[in-house]
Every structure is written in structure tokens, then in C-alpha cells.
């Protein structure tokens, strides 16, 4: 049957790997290329690389850096950050990027996303939704303005289906770096009759949750803290599932 994936999210800020907390307070984790090498040696299911400095400052992707990252990894790599032109996408795919994740463009240039699907196909696109839980409901978070919008997740989710994304990454901002666990309740607030693969992220803190997500028939979970940091003092520890756990999630 279909296989559940466990995906580390690596956040890059000005060439450095950082860990964010509620999408703020970047903490230096290390060198992105070395970290990708480690995950590659652990036979990671997939990696999501988000270059936050590029999207915030509206800069082009750092193609040289992405090239080095891709040459170190034999698992699928999804990239996001500063991708606003079809030319960027062509270049990224040529470098070995498997999928591109979009967020800002969703609010600014939907025609671009339609064009993307036409040229590269749905399976090359992940749409990312940053979500904030407030007053008993889930709202879309604008991380460039660092503001919670008044757009409800359930409305927005319905709305973006017409773009035909390959997958949707739902990232709980209020749980980012919190170790509070994934927010499974988010799934109840969306109507996924279109059966689009969902990747749930934000707060992942232990292996049991991963198994729980698999039981709930989620397509994938993603995490950053869980795979890069550890313990009370947020010490840096790059880790992935061990081979026994990988076998267990493949069953």
C-alpha cells in the first residue's frame, strides 16, 4: 500500500541552517550541506529545504548552494524560498530538486502557479499553508508580515484546491519549535474530499506521534526540531529514524 513518509524540514537563513521557534528567533544549527550529508547517510525518506531569507527579502534562490545540497542527497529534495519565475523552476529541477514548495505566491500570483502546474505537473508542486490557532479556529499566518490573517484555514484550503497542488504542507506556526506535538486537530478543520496528500508539520516531538500519524492515514509528517535538536537546552543533534523504526513505518 501507499507509504507514509517522515520528512525533516531544514530552514536556511543567509546560507546557514537555523531552527526557528514560532517562525522567529532563529537559532544556528550548522552547515546545511553537512547536515544534508548526514540525513543522506541515514537514508532519509525525503527532505524539505526552506530558505527563509530568500522569501522574506524577495531574493532569487541560491542556486549554487542548492546544487551542492542536491549533489549530497540521493533522496527526494523539496525546495522553497524565493521561487517566483518559471526559469527558477527549470533551473531547480535541473539541479536535482524534486518538488518546489510555494507559499507567498499563493497570495500574490496564482496565475504563476497555474502555469507551473501546466508545465511541470501537479506532482512537482507542494503548497505550504502556515497556520495559527486562535480563538478556537485555525487561521492563515502571513510570516512575512509576522501577522495572523483573518483567513480561515477551512476556507483557504477549499480555495487552493483549484490550483491542483500535488501535496499540501500544513505547518502549525504556534507549535513550531514548541515540542508540544503535532496538532492533529487541524485535520478535522479541513475538507479533504479531493484526497490530496497532506504533510503535517509543527511541534513533532516523538516517535509515537509519527506512528499515530501513520495510523491516521496521513501521507507524511514533517519536523525540524525533532531531527535537529534535543533536550532541555536545545542542543544540536542531527538524527533520523533508526532502521528498525524505518521498517516499522514501512509495514
Amino acid at each position: 500500500m501507499f507509504n507514509f513518509r517522515v520528512i525533516p524540514v531544514l530552514t536556511i537563513n543567509e546560507g546557514k541552517l537555523v531552527k526557528t521557534f514560532k517562525f522567529n528567533n532563529n537559532t544556528y544549527v550548522g552547515d546545511p550541506i553537512n547536515t544534508v550529508k548526514i540525513f543522506n547517510n541515514k537514508f532519509v525518506d525525503e527532505l524539505i529545504i526552506l530558505d527563509i531569507s530568500k522569501s522574506i527579502l524577495d531574493l532569487e534562490p541560491d542556486f549554487e548552494n542548492i546544487k551542492s545540497i542536491c549533489s549530497e542527497c540521493f533522496s527526494p529534495i523539496t525546495y522553497g524560498g524565493g521561487v517566483s519565475k518559471i526559469d527558477h523552476c527549470i533551473k531547480l529541477f535541473e539541479l536535482g530538486v524534486e518538488k518546489i514548495v510555494f507559499n507567498n505566491v499563493l497570495f500574490e500570483d496564482r496565475k504563476f502557479l497555474d502555469e507551473f502546474v501546466k508545465i511541470f505537473g501537479s506532482q512537482s508542486m507542494i503548497l505550504s499553508l502556515n497556520i495559527f490557532f486562535q480563538k478556537d479556529d485555525y487561521f492563515i499566518y502571513d510570516y512575512r508580515k509576522k501577522k495572523i490573517t483573518n483567513i480561515k484555514l477551512k476556507d483557504f484550503f477549499k480555495d487552493i484546491l483549484s490550483i491542483y497542488p500535488g501535496e499540501i504542507l500544513i505547518y502549525s506556526v504556534d507549535r513550531d519549535g514548541s515540542k508540544r506535538g503535532l496538532d492533529f486537530n487541524i485535520l478535522e478543520s479541513i475538507d479533504n474530499t479531493a484526497n490530496i496528500p497532506i504533510i503535517l508539520a509543527g511541534g513533532l516531538n516523538n516517535y509515537e506521534e509519527i506512528l499515530e500519524a501513520k495510523r491516521m492515514k496521513l501521507d507524511a509528517v514533517a519536523g525540524s526540531y525533532f531531527f535537529t535538536m534535543h533536550g532541555k537546552f536545545n542542543s544540536i543533534l542531527i538524527s533520523y529514524l533508526n532502521s528498525r523504526q524505518i521498517e516499522q513505518i514501512r509495514e
Binding site: 501507499f2 507509504n3 507514509f4 513518509r5 525518506d45 505537473g121 501537479s122 506532482q123 500535488g166 501535496e167 484526497n195 496528500p197 501521507d219 507524511a220 514501512r250
Partner: peptide, 9 residues
């Protein structure tokens, strides 16, 4: 079941 079919199989 899934369109697109993305992942390990």
C-alpha cells in the same frame, strides 16, 4: 487512491 501518486512504494 492518490492522485498524484507521490512517495515510496
Amino acid at each position: 487512491s492518490k492522485v498524484p501518486h507521490v512517495g515510496w512504494n
